[in-house]
C-alpha cells in the first residue's frame, strides 16, 4: 500500500476541507429543492426566457469581442513594444475592480449622452436596459479570461514553426490562420469557454446597466428579495444544471479537436498493433 508522509496527510485533510466547503452549499441547495418545484420552475416562462437571454447575450459578447481579443492576445504573445506591461495591467483591470463599480463605469460609457450612446441612438439602439448593454457589461468583466488564455496559447507556439511557414512562401496572414491559431486553438477555446462562463455568471455590472430584461443572476436576486430563499432556490438549481451541462458539452467538443496529433498518434499505434 502506498505510504504517505505526515505532511502529505495534512495537505490531503486541508484539501478535503476546501472541497467540502465548495460542495456542501451546492449539495445542500440541490437536496433542499424538490423535483416538483424544479419542474414547475422549468415551465415558468419568465425563468426560461431569462436563462435563454443569459446564454445568448454571453455567447454573443464572447463571439463578437473574440474577433479583436484574439489578435490582441497574439500581439501580446509575440511582440515587444513600449508600455507592454501597462497594456497587460489594463487587460487585467476588470478582474480586480468591484463589478458594481465596473457597472457604473459602463453605464457612464454607454448612456445616451456619450459618443457610443449617441451612435447607438442614431441606429435606434439604446444600450441601457437592452441586451446590447448586458452583452457589453458581460464582455467588460470577462474579456481578460479570453485574452490571457489565448496569449498563453500563442506564446506556446514555437516561433520557428511560424518562421518555417514564412520561408515556405506563406504570407503573415496565412501563417496566423494556418499555423499560429490552430496550434494555439486549445487555449483559445479554453479562453472562449471561460469568457462565456464568466459572462453568464455576471451580476454586479449587469444589474447596474440593465435590471430589465432580466438575466438569470438578476432574476435569482429578485426572487430572493421579493419572495425569499424558497423561491430563489429552484431557479438557482436549474441555472446551475443548465450551465454545467453546457460547459460539459463545450469541453467535450473542444477536447475532440484539441491535440489532434496526440489522438492520431494513439490511432496510428492501434493500427500498427492490429
Amino acid at each position: 500500500m502506498k505510504r504517505y508522509q505526515s505532511i502529505q496527510l495534512v495537505f490531503i485533510f486541508l484539501g478535503a476541507l476546501i472541497l467540502l466547503f465548495i460542495v456542501s452549499p451546492l449539495l445542500g441547495m440541490f437536496l433542499k429543492t424538490s423535483p416538483r418545484s424544479l419542474f414547475e420552475t422549468a415551465g415558468d416562462k419568465e425563468v426560461t426566457g431569462s436563462i435563454w437571454l443569459t446564454i445568448w447575450t454571453s455567447m454573443s459578447a464572447t463571439v463578437l469581442f473574440a474577433f479583436a481579443a484574439i489578435p490582441l492576445a497574439y500581439l501580446l504573445a509575440r511582440k515587444t513594444f513600449p508600455l507592454k506591461k501597462l497594456v497587460t495591467g489594463i487587460i487585467d483591470l476588470p478582474i480586480v475592480i468591484p463589478h458594481s463599480a465596473a457597472g457604473i463605469a459602463i453605464l457612464g460609457f454607454v448612456s445616451r449622452d456619450t459618443i457610443l450612446g449617441k451612435l447607438g441612438s442614431a441606429i435606434g439602439l439604446n444600450f441601457i436596459g437592452n441586451p446590447a448593454g448586458i452583452a457589453i457589461a458581460m464582455a467588460f468583466v470577462s474579456i481578460p479570461y479570453l485574452i490571457n488564455a489565448a496569449r498563453d496559447g500563442f506564446a506556446g507556439v514555437p516561433e520557428r514553426t511560424e518562421k518555417a511557414a514564412l520561408t515556405l512562401g506563406a504570407t503573415p496572414a496565412r501563417v496566423f490562420f494556418t499555423i499560429s491559431l490552430p496550434l494555439a486553438w486549445r487555449n483559445v477555446v479554453s479562453g472562449l469557454i471561460l469568457m462565456f462562463a464568466r459572462g453568464m455568471s455576471e451580476f454586479g455590472a449587469v444589474i447596474v446597466v440593465a435590471y430589465h430584461p432580466m438575466i438569470t443572476p438578476v432574476l435569482i436576486y429578485e426572487r430572493f428579495g421579493s419572495f425569499g430563499l424558497k423561491y430563489a432556490r429552484p431557479v438557482s438549481v436549474l441555472f446551475i444544471l443548465i450551465s454545467l451541462s453546457l460547459f460539459i458539452i463545450l469541453r467535450m467538443l473542444s477536447n475532440d479537436t484539441k491535440d489532434i496529433s496526440f489522438n492520431r498518434k494513439r490511432k496510428n499505434k492501434k493500427t500498427e498493433i492490429s
Binding site: R160, K163, A164, T167, P182
Partner: peptide, 13 residues
C-alpha cells in the same frame, strides 16, 4: 530560398 531548421519545425497539426 529554402530553410530547414535544426529542430525541423514540422507543423504538428
Amino acid at each position: 530560398i529554402g530553410l530547414v531548421f535544426q529542430d525541423h519545425a514540422v507543423f504538428p497539426h
